[in-house]
Every structure is written in C-alpha cells, then in structure tokens.
Simulated scan of single mutants.
Amino acid sequence: MLTARSRFETPNGSSYLQRLCKHFEHKIKVEYDAHRGHCTLPSGQALMEADETGISFLVEADDAEGLARGKGVIESHLVRFAFRENLERLDWQEGAPAA
C-alpha cells in the first residue's frame, strides 16, 4: 500500500472536513464527524483529521496511479472549497509502502 500525507493550516479545518465528506458521500462510502473522516475512494482510501489549526490528509492506494488519483480528488475539491483562503495546491509527502 502506497501512502501520501498533507496538511492545510486553517482555522476552518472541521468545516472543510465536513464539507468534503458531505460532498463525497453522494458517490462513495463515507464516515465522518466534526474531527475525523474516512472516505472509501475507488482507488483506495482517504483519512482526514481536523483540529483548531488545520486539516490533515492521509491517502492510501495499491499503486502509484491510484495514489495520484486519490490525491487529485482530495486536492481539487479542497482547493475549490477553500477559494477564500487562496489555496492553490497541497504539499504532499509520499511515504514508504505500508505493510
């Protein structure tokens, strides 16, 4: 399993987490509350955690193509939702394959 992590510093992390999850639940399985979200993407899964200073993402997929798709889905939607904060992109750190 390949992984990628990112974080967006914002006082609106919980709001973005809930907005993303509400949007995604129309098409995929999603579980969330005000501080944590889990999305079952076609290419893997995305985990989100929000606190008072931001929102963190962990995307997992079986292959590089799936990881790129998962990161793209999360990033494109967050950029759209966070337009007032002038977010242009997320800075992703890809990790070693998970065991």
Rank of each mutant, 00 (worst) to 15 (best):
H26I: 03
N12G: 02
W92I: 07
L67S: 06
L2C: 08
A61C: 05
D33G: 09
D62V: 07
M1L: 03
K71E: 12
M48R: 12
F83Q: 03
G44D: 06
D33M: 10
T10V: 12
R84C: 00
K22T: 14
E75P: 01
L67I: 08
A98V: 12
T3W: 04
Q93S: 12
S56R: 14
S43Q: 11
A4S: 15
A61E: 08
D33T: 13
R7I: 08
T3V: 14
M48Q: 12
C21D: 09
A4V: 11
F81W: 03
F24G: 01
G13Q: 09
E65G: 08
G95K: 01
A4L: 11
T53R: 15
P97I: 09
A82K: 12
A4G: 13
G72V: 04
E88G: 03
G66Q: 05
L87I: 03
A68F: 06
L47P: 01
L2G: 08
E65T: 07
R80H: 06
H23P: 01
M48P: 00
F24L: 15
T40G: 04
I55H: 02
P97W: 11
W92N: 06
G37C: 06
G37L: 11
H38R: 14
A50D: 09
D51M: 13
E25T: 14
V30K: 13
E60P: 01
K29R: 12
R80M: 06
N12Q: 07
H38I: 14
A68S: 10
A46C: 11
D51C: 11
A82G: 03
H77L: 02
D91A: 00
D63W: 05
S76Y: 02
L58T: 15
S15W: 13
S6H: 07
E94H: 00
L78G: 01
A61G: 03
A96P: 00
E25S: 15
T10G: 06
E31Y: 08
F57L: 14
F8A: 07
N86T: 04
D63R: 05
G54K: 06
A46P: 00
E75M: 01
A64Q: 11
G54E: 09
H26A: 05
D63E: 08
A68T: 09
W92F: 02
F24T: 08
Q93G: 04
A61S: 14
A99E: 14
L90A: 04
R80L: 05
R84G: 02
L17D: 11
P97E: 13
L47M: 09
A34P: 01
Q18E: 07
H77G: 00
R5F: 04
N86C: 06
D51K: 12
F83N: 02
R7P: 00
A96Y: 05
L20W: 02
I55R: 04
A68H: 10
R7K: 08
A98T: 14
G70T: 10
A98S: 13
V73S: 03
Y16W: 13
S43K: 07
E94M: 01
S76C: 02
C39W: 14
E52N: 15
R19H: 06
V79F: 04
E94F: 00
L90V: 07
K71N: 05
R19S: 05
K27P: 02
